[in-house]
Design a binder for these strands. Sequence first.
DNA 1: AAATGTTATTTGCAAAAAACAATTAACTGT
DNA 2: ACAGTTAATTGTTTTTTGCAAATAACATTT
Lengths: 219, 219
Amino acid sequence: MEPTYPQPLVMVDTALFTIREERLCLILTRRREPPFEGVLALPGGFVHVQEDADTEMAARRVIRSKIGFDARYLEQLFTFSGPARDPRGWSVSVAYYALIPLTLLDQSQAAEALPVDALPPLPFDHPQIVARAVERLRGKATYSSLPAFLLPGEFTMNDLHRIYEQTIGARLDKASFRHKILEQDIIEPIPNRFRVGAHRPAQLYRLSSKALTPFERKI
Amino acid sequence: MEPTYPQPLVMVDTALFTIREERLCLILTRRREPPFEGVLALPGGFVHVQEDADTEMAARRVIRSKIGFDARYLEQLFTFSGPARDPRGWSVSVAYYALIPLTLLDQSQAAEALPVDALPPLPFDHPQIVARAVERLRGKATYSSLPAFLLPGEFTMNDLHRIYEQTIGARLDKASFRHKILEQDIIEPIPNRFRVGAHRPAQLYRLSSKALTPFERKI
DNA sequence: AAATGTTATTTGCAAAAAACAATTAACTGT
DNA sequence: ACAGTTAATTGTTTTTTGCAAATAACATTT
């Protein structure tokens, strides 16, 4: 009962976000094959039906091969499709976006992260994927724990405050932010852990288990 | 430069919501072919690369062939994939959900709409698609104009109030609801149009152009 | 014509949340 | 001990929400 129709090509593309120098950035990759050989693009690849349990696993595979480890947060974004988006033929790309703390990247990877508002011309329909990814991230940032995944496992309230401001691109009141975040139980103080310096020590926090909604999950 | 990998089957599935007897319902279809011939399922079908400009057009085609006209609101939901979700092989299903006013359906279609909390056992991974669709609709209902698309083009404030309560499944304050909706500019009064009866006439409203966010669109 | 029933719409007030501005706390280094 | 710096809290004003009641606009009945 296989359909007799010719089937589209199926691939995944990933938008890998990080924060560098106070700006929301994307990690791009230089394509090693045609089409668009040598051009900077979103990391992506074909789904491998032999080895991938689903498209999310394909996305994880792509991400690992790019940065060497798993993203702290990965979520399906949108599926792009059509005859024209890829010169190789009618294709379907399941796009994902991921959040990666800059501190986990090595020197050269970190340097390659480019601000989302100053990207080079991108091939395929990657500009649309980027637009949607930024929109989604900004939209979710205001009411979820997402931006926390751009930080390493331990962070101060001010770290978190800054990263929310940078992903949303707007100023947030310090006291209200603190209150709202703590009330939502998405982070918890790590007992007796403080960041010290030439000033009052800052309580260190970590994400709590309530940080994600049911359909989202850490990988 | 075609990939040599075997490619997945690509299909679309649709969750068609309507409100019947104060309850959120889905319009199912009885499958005419194997697998699962004769079983109630979400309307769906393969993508036709010859005629479909993208998966959204495939979804529209499926919806038209089911109910005979276009949905008032259509949005991509999520893409499901894997070797086991369909017995025909490794497949990708781009799922959509749509909102359809009951009044537009004919008698037999309307009768087939079943409450989301009392569905029969569904084939494939359709239960997961339904769960995600209901989650998305309920989630968006609280802060968007979505539920209005379950109503015909003209409606009263009380119609709208009721349909929001029914999709969300919770009670909403009358005065606050009115205030919030009007403040958001998602609907506008139709000048000099009222629903009359044995009581004070009710102002009729319609959706305004601001009713949808950039990435959403009417079809 | 006035009273009644019914649904629509507005108003007023208390409670809660958010925004804003300032103060207090806890360190290091001099 | 004091200055400098960042953390954390507190108090006050403004805005939003929740709740209850009052008023408005009819058709129908008395």
